[in-house]
Amino acid sequence: MRGIMRVPFIKMHGLGNDFVVLDSRNQPLPPVDARKAAALADRRTGIGCDQLVLMENSAIADFRMRIFNPDGSEVGACGNASRAVALLYGQACTIETGGGVIEAQLADAGIAVNMGLPRFDWDIIPLAYAMDTLSMPVGWEELENPVAVNVGNPHVVFFVSDTDAVELDRLGPVIENDPLFPERVNVNVATVTDRGAMRLRVWERGAGLTRACGTGACASAIAAMRRGLVDRSVAVTLPGGTLTIAWGEDGTITMTGPATESFRGDFEWDALA
């Protein structure tokens, strides 16, 4: 009779964007597929989280991070999860992700993560066809002329007078699944309050409304900087809290903010499927 496999997990969050972290660097795990990821993320029958995060060994960085949404889809980048795994690592580190290798350091304000270079080419976002990504000639009801940015995953950013007035729970999934975005897209609505601050809400691809989205904060800050609305360092306040986003002279984005370990536990691997 095969023994029961119990797997340890760590529950973490960054500004309320919560994760179940599985560390397979020293304890190999069976393959994680979309069904397993969705089962673990389910808040009623699983552990519950916005994203499942796997820490794995890497040949090109200190470790590899893989990220799964609650619908089972795998994504290339997650800023809040990057800070969480860097906190677990406990020192400066490089992290291999689906969007490239990123760097993280412990900072006074939490964890500072170098998210790499933003991309603006329409075919890298990607979009279904060529257009100006700084002011896209498209709209969905009152949300018009967004900026498109790829920061390891695809984002569109709409600048509005009041983020709270937008029915993002209704328009978010419509835009996310529009044929214009062949890999779907994260939807951001941002309000600039002064040269150094902005407010943001995010509909996250494959996850829905979220209290915080690190890559969304990066994408929205870069979009505002490209349009000349804010300075090269800006505080981005989301429903869960504030991140500081800086766009360096070398072109890379640095995101700084907190990460928190909530609790630890274990579960029976075959019980969640």
Rank of each mutant, 00 (worst) to 15 (best):
T242W: 08
K11W: 10
G216I: 06
A273E: 14
A221P: 06
W247F: 06
V202A: 02
S58M: 11
V147P: 00
I4F: 05
A34D: 10
E142N: 14
P137I: 02
E249Y: 02
H13S: 11
A212R: 06
N17I: 10
G248C: 12
G48L: 02
M1K: 09
A109H: 06
R195K: 08
G214N: 02
A221H: 10
A148L: 02
N145A: 13
Q105D: 14
G206N: 06
A235V: 10
P154V: 03
Q105V: 13
V187R: 02
A41P: 01
A165Q: 14
S24C: 14
V147F: 09
G100I: 05
K11P: 05
R35W: 09
R170Y: 13
I222R: 04
G206Q: 04
A223H: 10
L15R: 07
I95C: 01
M1S: 14
R44T: 01
N69V: 05
D266E: 15
Q27K: 15
M198F: 10
S135G: 14
M55L: 15
I10G: 02
V75T: 12
A221G: 11
M5W: 03
V236W: 10
T256D: 12
T193A: 06
P239K: 09
I10A: 06
A212P: 08
G46H: 11
M131K: 03
D71G: 11
R43G: 08
P179V: 10
E144G: 00
F63E: 07
I253R: 08
V101F: 07
Y89V: 05
A37R: 04
G241V: 03
D231Y: 01
V151T: 13
A86C: 08
S233C: 12
L209G: 01
P258T: 04
L106I: 13
V236M: 13
V53M: 11
R184I: 01
S220P: 09
E176Y: 11
S58P: 08
E204H: 04
N188C: 11
L272Q: 06
G48R: 02
V151G: 00
